[in-house]
Design a protein around this nucleic acid. Structure first.
Length: 411
RNA sequence: GCGAUCGUAGCUCAGUUGGUUAGAGCGCCGGUUUGUGGUACCGGAGGUCGGGGGUUCGAGACCCCUCGAUCGCCCCA
């Protein structure tokens, strides 16, 4: 590599070969399943006004306070490369009058950007698939959304991943729980890890997720959300869980599961690899494969009317790591030009065009040492090979190299 | 932002306590062998050993700095 060749930006990836096939497999499967569940496709801008994210996600979250790719455009507006889909979709819902379609089921996928230190399964430009149901307050929407996620993972052939489910209650429940946690952890503040002492100020719910053993001793006896749930919140969660059971979606209660962003209410969930599973090993420390929840308060933070909604997103790279090797399809036909004659090249070129018009995937080998061209073709394992020389051609493979192929190629 | 590990050919990697002209496999290019064929052989191109400085008679190897990558912490998909 020349020393003055520009390098790729840190945390970006050039995906090729088997990895690219796995990536495409995830997206194609998502598109298929999303249609099964009648989610409508949306395409969204990759960047928005910065306030779309800062207001929707919450100023104090790490995503907003230190992980956004923000810049000023030529008009002086602060813009940000989207760090997630939900905020942008919510903005679109409000600014395009999509209320008329509510309840609206939408799905999308594409690149997202977060200024973070890259590591296994985490990049600065990464890709997600995303599904949202907007304008639906009933627990059946949560069930619908999770049933799709569950089926998607199954159709991707991913095993050893379990739905971890929790409720954060409604706004009152969540606030009361939060106050309870601050009181409980505040009493032992000095014995918590440095990180958790900071979390106490910024996001006390996150202490429950801490991996630090100093915190874990207190987490076990921390106040549980269940003690703070209103009757409505409790009924809502019960309806979600019984719906999941009816839909045949396996789940586990995860009492300390909270999500990072301010806008979540009620249902919160993550699909996480089971301890010791192949999936857990493949993902390193980036364990969540698909996550989301209900965000009933988000629309109001963007200045819209109260609009209930649920959604999830999943990292395509992480899913691709779990779907196994996806080989590139072998060609239907490879055409070999076995000598340097003009006549052979002309007839081969013509046959190649005919093959493609007939719907066969085909490529031609006419470069390099003539003696080695056939071997190159064989190594690519095509379904059939047709080789040309100045005075004729030979067919091998296909359906016994039969007359059908010759006819298709006009030979 | 913090920590650990690692940077040798296009790719995967050897390279002894520091010692001549830095190697192999795969891939690439040319030739021979085979001749309905995934074979075998011969030859070739391709490296300022990530970059800079230092120690030394001598550095791919040791020291310092720097850049980059990987993995982890924080956070998150």
């Amino acid at each position: 590599m020349s020393k003055n060749t520009p390098k790729a930006i840190r945390g970006t990836q050039d995906i090729f070969g088997a990895d690219a096939e796995a990536f495409a497999f995830v997206v194609e499967t998502f598109e298929r399943v999303r249609k099964l569940y009648r989610f409508r496709r949306v395409e969204m801008p990759v960047f928005e006004k910065t306030e779309v994210f800062s207001r929707a996600i919450g100023e104090t979250t790490d995503v907003v306070s230190k992980e956004m790719y923000s810049f000023e455009d030529r008009g002086g507006d602060s813009l940000t490369l989207r760090p997630e889909f939900t905020a942008g979709i919510s903005r679109a819902f409000l600014t395009n009058g999509w209320q008329q379609h509510a309840p609206l089921k939408v799905a999308t996928h594409g690149p997202l950007f977060r200024y973070e230190r890259p590591q296994k399964g985490r990049y600065r430009q990464f890709h997600q698939i995303d599904a949202e149901i907007i304008g639906a307050a009933e627990p059946q929407a949560d069930v619908e959304l999770l049933a799709m996620a569950d089926q998607l993972l199954k159709e991707l052939g991913i095993e050893g991943v379990t739905l971890h489910l929790n409720t954060l209650g409604d706004a009152q429940s969540r606030d009361a729980w939060r106050a309870g946690l601050i009181e409980y952890f505040g009493a032992v503040k000095g014995e918590l890890s440095e990180d958790s002492q900071e979390r106490l100020e910024k996001n006390p719910l996150r202490i429950l997720d801490s991996k630090d053993p100093r915190d874990k001793v207190f987490v076990a006896d921390a106040p549980k959300i269940d003690a703070f749930l209103s009757d409505d919140a409790l009924a809502f969660f019960g309806a979600v869980t019984s719906g999941l059971d009816a839909a045949g979606v396996k789940w586990e209660r995860a009492e300390s599961l909270v999500r990072g962003l301010d806008y979540y209410r009620h249902t919160a969930f993550e699909f996480i690899p089971d301890e010791g599973s192949a999936a857990a090993g493949a993902l390193g420390s980036q364990s969540t494969v698909l996550g989301g929840g209900r965000y009933d308060g988000l629309m109001e933070s963007l200045g819209g009317p109260a609009t209930p909604a649920v959604g999830w997103a999943a990292g395509i790279e992480r899913l691709a790591m779990l779907v196994g090797e996806k080989a590139e399809e072998p060609a239907d036909l490879i055409i070999v030009v076995e000598d340097r004659s003009e006549a052979a090249l002309v007839r081969a070129t013509s046959a190649l065009k005919s093959a493609r018009l007939a719907g066969l995937s085909a490529e031609m080998i006419a470069e390099g040492s003539p003696r080695k061209r056939y071997d190159k073709a064989v190594k690519r394992s095509p379904r059939a090979i047709v080789s040309f020389e100045e005075d004729g051609h030979r067919v091998s493979g296909g359906d016994e190299g039969g007359p059908d192929l010759e006819k298709v190629l006009g030979l």
